[in-house]
């Protein structure tokens, strides 16, 4: 592999790599994927890099050919919100850099485009996540009435979570609010004996909050040898689970079920 001599645009290379890494980290990529992707882009641009990846910050060093100078910078990553459209787009981009020799300007434009990509419309998200709640209820053996209860509880819970995230509550508190709302609605159904197995709806109404990405990424990181990141992700997942449990617990205390 040829290593270029550092020049004035090494700064922008470093900044772009850090930007890409931070986007990947907050979109829910595993540590190994971030490392491989950034090294691929750096290779495509003709540099060699060393990386330190942690949950909330990235550190990158670009090494020059004769090892006389280097560029080094630390970047804090933004809070996490899973977005696989960005993970997929950056993966495409990294291959384009390697195979079609993209320039830094092209990469910067592509990053800007990926950031501006829309989410699904809010109603679609609410509707499908509600369906997922109903689906969980069906899988655990609930009937149609319980499925409707789970649907309503999930949609309201997710709505509360979106609003809480929007006004920037602590992330675990957002989960607590959502779990409380969802299980309160399902709990009311249990309180008034709606349906034959209302406990099924109660147990499944909060499953949309399950921290699947932190927990799966945690095991992936541990297997890849990124033990520190794996533990951090696992504890993050546990704290989210704990917030969900606290929400359920509060509702059980209030409704006494």
């Amino acid at each position: 592999m040829k290593i270029k001599t550092l020049n004035e645009d090494s700064q922008s290379v470093g900044n772009i790599l850090l930007e890409t890494g931070a986007m990947l980290m907050s979109s829910g990529a595993s540590s190994n994927r971030i490392r491989v992707t950034l090294e691929r882009i750096a290779n495509g641009l003709g540099y060699k890099t060393e990386l330190l990846i942690t949950h909330r910050a990235l550190m990158l060093t670009i090494i020059e050919k004769d090892q006389q100078h280097f560029f080094s910078r630390l970047k804090r990553t933004s809070p996490h919100g899973v977005n696989f459209r960005i993970v997929s787009g950056i993966s495409h981009m990294s291959w384009n850099v390697l195979e079609q020799n993209w320039t830094i300007t092209q990469i910067a434009d592509e990053l800007r485009r990926l950031k501006s990509l829309p989410h699904y419309p809010r109603l679609v998200i609410l509707g499908f996540v509600g369906l997922a709640g109903a689906a969980f209820c069906r899988i655990f053996g609930g009937g149609y009435v319980e499925m409707i209860v789970a649907f309503v509880a999930t949609v309201t819970g997710l709505f509360v979570r979106q609003e809480a995230v929007r006004v920037k509550f602590n992330p675990y508190l957002c989960v607590y609010f959502a779990a409380f709302t969802a299980s309160f609605i399902a709990g009311l159904a249990e309180h008034f004996q709606i349906g034959t197995q209302p406990d099924k709806a109660f147990a499944t109404s909060v499953l949309f909050l399950v921290p699947g990405v932190p927990l799966i990424n945690s095991v992936t990181d541990l297997l890849d040898g990124n033990i520190q990141n794996g533990l951090i992700r696992a504890i993050n997942g546990l704290m989210i689970s704990f917030s969900i449990a606290m929400g359920l617990f509060s509702v059980r205390m209030i409704l006494n079920i």
């Binding site: 899973v82 459209r85 990405v213």
Partner: peptide
């Protein structure tokens, strides 16, 4: 079969929550 169908629906719900590309 019915449970599997609903497992797929649950997967779609999470896919939309995670903002996957539409083709997937």
């Amino acid at each position: 079969l019915i449970k599997s169908f609903w497992a797929g629906i649950a997967a779609i719900g999470f896919a939309i929550l995670f903002n996957v590309p539409r083709r997937t």
